[in-house]
């Protein structure tokens, strides 16, 4: 599975770089939205067929919020740690990390600060998404199912969700969607807030 994911993305990057056809460039966002909606429908079907999912969710209760909280704290801690190895200030690298994989939004927000930081935000959050997509099947096997949601962060409600559903069992996809929604609400708040401290 990992090798399929990786080769699809790499093949796409090479294709886009060497043959950026006008038709494709103009319709690419619509195409992504259509594909995403189709996949989310299939995720819904998987959830619906799993009859004891409601009981699973009820048993989590309010503790379900621990997942997005742990992801935000872990991400902020990790990106602050990384600033010690880089030429960025603590707040700059924390703001980049706070994109939580939502690369379009974090890049736009941080390019207001500096063009360079905007590009770093784009690359860091694209690579978070790509690394997550590649690592999710491995994390599910080696570490645990709930942990796959952490790697995906904000993308666990859309792009990464089908892979999380395929790699894990039971109610994890609902927790993933829920966590992804919470994190996606937080990104537009956290990124401008953190960079304002800089």
């Amino acid at each position: 599975m990992t090798i399929h994911i990786l080769s699809s993305i790499i093949f796409g990057i090479i294709f886009g770089y060497f043959w950026p056809s006008e038709v494709l460039v103009q319709n690419i966002n619509g195409l992504i939205d259509f594909g995403l909606c189709l996949l989310l429908f299939f995720v819904g079907v998987d959830i619906g067929r799993n009859k004891n999912i409601i009981d699973d969710i009820k048993s989590y209760g309010i503790r379900i919020f621990l997942v997005p909280i742990a992801i935000v704290l872990g991400t902020l801690f990790g990106s602050i740690m990384s600033s010690f190895f880089l030429k960025l200030s603590i707040f700059e690298s924390a703001a980049v990390g706070a994109g939580l994989g939502w690369y379009s939004l974090s890049a736009i927000e941080l390019s207001k600060h500096s063009a360079e930081l905007g590009t770093i935000a784009f690359l860091a959050n694209v690579s978070r998404e790509v690394i997550a997509l590649i690592m999710i099947p491995i994390i599910a096997n080696r570490i645990g199912h709930m942990e796959t949601i952490a790697a995906a962060a904000a993308t666990s409600m859309d792009v990464s969700l089908p892979i999380i559903t395929r790699s894990t069992k039971g109610s994890i996809s609902i927790v993933a969607f829920f966590s992804g929604v919470i994190l996606s609400i937080l990104v537009p708040i956290l990124v401008p807030l953190i960079i304002s401290f800089n």
């Binding site: 872990g74 991400t75 860091a124």
Partner: peptide, 24 residues
Amino acid sequence: TAVIISVFSIVFSVLGVKFVSRFI
């Protein structure tokens, strides 16, 4: 720079969820 930030973010958020998943 970008990859360092994303790898650190992923590692520590996975550790964070690993920690809280025990309680869940």
